[in-house]
């Protein structure tokens, strides 16, 4: 059996490791996972490394250095299938805030010796550099979704990746709408489900880490959220958060910021 097991490689790029940890947090299913696939490269889990090529590469993190551009191309060449894991890998993550600012100025403010740094002006998703077979969003990803995708590959079926918004998950688990009930700004109506509405169920608004759902109406949500802003500019900042570099949320934030300019 072990000969026919597909090989799995897990890589990290610019990221916090949280999505890889979500795989390790699969505790109850980890042994079954190690039986179902041959974990050939996963430095966060084991030093033991088997040589590629690999059947499946899972890539966490965004591309933020020249070296990373070269490395992701090598990884793509050595992998039959490649999954971008987590919002850094799917839309640049929080470090993509630099895409809307001057990265050199950030570096100057944060580091005493920015001249030692090697970085690109932008943090970009994996799919901007190589072909990605499947994107799994989330900051962090939902570990159950990771498992479902691996299971779907092994069993040759379609993974359960919802195209609808977080609202449907809130309602299925009986969470009361925080937006209507407590005027808490929430991106749930335009954000892809898959997290099981974890933030609204804890009394917080969704901050859009699963990225835009399919065929959403960000214009209407902007109108709603602007009326309930607790600080000026809150809605634009919400769209320009974790998934802010995804084209739909980018457009939504730009529309607000441009509207503000016109208003002034």
């Amino acid at each position: 059996m072990s000969h026919s097991r597909p090989t799995l490689a897990v890589y990290k790029f610019s990221s916090c490791d949280g999505c890889q940890l979500s795989i390790l947090n699969l505790e109850d299913e980890l042994l079954a996972l190690a039986e179902a696939v041959d974990i050939a490269y996963f430095l966060e889990a084991t030093r033991a490394v088997k040589e590629g090529p690999y059947d499946l590469a899972i890539v966490e993190g965004s591309i933020t250095t020249q070296h990373e551009i070269e490395r992701i191309k090598e990884i793509r060449q050595s992998a039959k299938k490649l999954i971008a894991l987590g919002t850094c890998a799917t839309s640049g993550g929080i470090q993509a805030l630099r895409n809307f600012a001057d990265a050199d100025r950030y570096a100057d403010v944060v580091y005493e010796h920015p001249e030692y740094l090697h970085y690109l002006k932008t943090a970009t998703p994996v799919a901007e550099h190589v072909h990605v077979d499947l994107e799994l969003w989330g900051c962090p990803v939902n570990k159950a979704q990771v498992l479902d995708v691996i299971s779907s590959l092994l069993n040759n079926r379609q993974p359960n990746l919802p195209p609808y918004s977080v609202c449907l998950e809130c309602k299925r688990r009986n969470t009361v709408c925080v937006l209507v009930d407590q005027a808490i700004p929430c991106l749930g109506p335009v954000t892809q489900a898959g997290c099981n509405a974890i933030c609204p169920s804890m009394g917080r608004g969704c901050y859009g880490c699963f990225g835009p759902a399919r065929e959403v109406n960000t214009n209407s949500l902007t109108t709603i959220l602007k009326k309930m802003e607790r600080q000026p500019g809150e809605t634009a900042r919400l769209f320009r958060g974790i998934s802010g570099y995804s084209p739909i949320f980018q457009d939504a934030a730009d529309a607000i910021l441009e509207g503000n300019k016109v208003a002034k």
Binding site: A32, L33, A36, S151, R157, Y164
Partner: peptide, 23 residues
């Protein structure tokens, strides 16, 4: 449908859906 990693067990559940879901 939820299928186990080893493909030996499978389950089907009915969940609420909506005509507003683009899927």
């Amino acid at each position: 449908d939820e299928i186990s990693l080893d493909g030996q067990t499978t389950g089907r559940a009915r969940v609420w859906d909506s005509c507003f879901n683009p899927g």
